[in-house]
Design a protein around this nucleic acid. Structure first.
Lengths: 305, 305
DNA sequence: ATAATTTAGTTGACTCAGTCAACTGAATTA
DNA sequence: TAATTCAGTTGACTGAGTCAACTAAATTAT
């Protein structure tokens, strides 16, 4: 999966959507408002009591320009502005009844344009469009509240995801080669092929329907649980997800009466290492190797239960 | 979700995306081009020989305004325009080398902005965004021609993708269980671990930066090439991609002097089966099994080279 | 407590992106 | 052959948006 091809596709969409929005915004053609006017009025209407600075920041407008627009709106009695008692420099802006009427009219026009576009579509298509829009927005909007991650058992495809994400991450971040993906695929395949639901488990952390982390416990025999394939995606690091996953493993291993958890890692994986330390694992052996290209120290850690 | 709720959600997305595009278009801030300039230059660059009327229609620009922009571009030697011999009123516009350089620079800036946005996202997220964009575009743009798929060698992560996509597809479509994912992971892992670049290869079909198909050739010894893990994603079926992939395998196996290609499949996979028939494979054995849950007939096919 | 700096918002002065109407000359239709 | 349409250009304009300089309140530094 090529990043640059993804970017090209995104650019292509942006060109298309620039045009598309251009067409939609003709809704305002026979009103006395420009697109910017409409955006401002809309923003005030839906955030009553907003200040000019916030408004300018949210809509990415020049303060001077915004000031003039607000002045005009005030002159036309679409909005009212009174000084904020807690900070006399700034003002509290709200729409008048007349302004609200205009704002609703603009809304109706805009809705009508979209309704027209949706008109010719098949039954489920508008729904598909809107859920695709939601996907994009959730992922691109930094202000969209980031959903909490949920942790669940693995489902079909998840093991493949583990292979893919680890291979991609460790080749990108540490320059490991193809052999690493081979190893992960092997470990993952063996886990599935010998899967014992009584004594083994695979946890997947998921956010907005997208996998962001994993770990699994495999039976190593002799009362030893092997903790394997701990991984947290770049986008979800720093949230304590790794620790949560390891805690999950420890709880499971205890409940299943394992006497020890053991794991194999590389010293370069600092974040993982610090989780192991925090959860009480101890390093019992270390060895140089070049299994994946660059020289690393592989380490074995254990936790007695 | 009711119609009006859908429309509201679409409007909300449009407001968000208007802002978002505004931010992206800052890429042009420190160039001598406006957004409109960039759009025009881009359109000419990618449709060499386009006429001014088409250009104005595609970009929804006023002909007078466009005329002035083109005049300026001509003065700056970014484009050339010669009269269309079949209609002396209209002109054939094309970019000069200098114009192409500018156009590519603008492209780089725009790509960089998007890359920056994609930077902090999780592995699958840019992919989700782009496929959501494709959904929207396909449904809203009646002229959208789906991009052609390209076929390339595998890269890190692709083997994991193969495991994931096949596991997901076959559990969804045929109700196969986890053992299938285990088998695929195993085959894929072995392929990577014993990979012989001289005699083995893995092809990935990609569209809009999204993987949509795969196949691989592994050395089975004795002059026999094993064709494995042929797969075409639901979204890209019916385009002949499967056949293209198999043809690629046959060409490769011939060039590498294999004497035979053999493969293992299940009779329920009708599309694959018809490709094998078409490309000259013959069925040599068939056997009932319940390896993945439902009862299937597994089949071995061979093609002598 | 006072001075220096920052912040919210406004105003003057400007420019250039974009619009509208009227035109030229070639192509098409009546 | 005349009337109409079409591709593209030019004149004349306007108003959306920008930049710098300002006022006055609030905050921070001394």
């Amino acid at each position: 999966m090529s990043d640059s091809a993804l970017i090209e596709a995104a650019r292509d969409f942006n060109r298309f959507y620039t045009n598309f929005l251009g067409v939609l915004n003709r809704a305002y053609l026979d009103t006395p408002f420009t697109l910017t006017d409409a955006r401002v009025l809309f923003e005030i209407g839906s955030h009553d009591g907003i200040g000019a600075v916030t408004l300018a920041r949210d809509l990415q407008l020049d303060p001077a320009y915004l000031s003039r627009i607000l002045k005009r709106f005030r002159a036309e009695a679409l909005i009212e502005a009174k000084p904020d008692p807690s900070d006399l420099r700034s003002q509290i802006i709200s729409v008048t009844d007349q302004g609200r009427a205009q704002f609703q009219d603009l809304g109706r026009r805009s809705s009508a344009q979209i309704a027209e576009r949706f008109e010719g579509l098949a039954l489920g298509e508008p729904h598909s469009i809107v859920s695709a829009m939601t996907t994009i927005r959730t992922l691109l909007d930094p202000n969209a509240a980031s959903a909490p991650a949920i942790i669940r058992a693995h489902r079909p495809g998840d093991i493949g995801w583990i292979v893919q994400s680890q291979a991609k991450a460790y080749t990108d971040e540490y320059g490991w080669d193809m052999r690493f993906e081979g190893l992960v695929a092997d470990v993952a395949g063996k886990f599935l092929n010998n899967f014992d639901p009584q004594l083994e488990y695979c946890w997947i952390a998921e956010r907005n329907g997208i996998n962001v982390g994993s770990v699994l416990i495999a039976n190593g025999g002799d009362g030893v649980a092997k903790l394997r394939l701990l991984y947290v995606d770049k986008a979800a690091r720093g949230l304590g997800l790794g620790k949560t996953l390891v805690d999950e493993c420890i709880r499971f291993a205890s409940a299943k009466k394992y006497r020890q958890i053991s794991l194999w890692t590389n010293d370069i994986l600092h974040a993982a290492r610090s989780i192991y330390v925090k959860t009480g694992f101890r390093l019992i052996s270390e060895e140089k190797h070049c299994m994946f290209g660059p020289q690393e120290n592989c380490q074995t850690w254990v936790l007695d239960l």
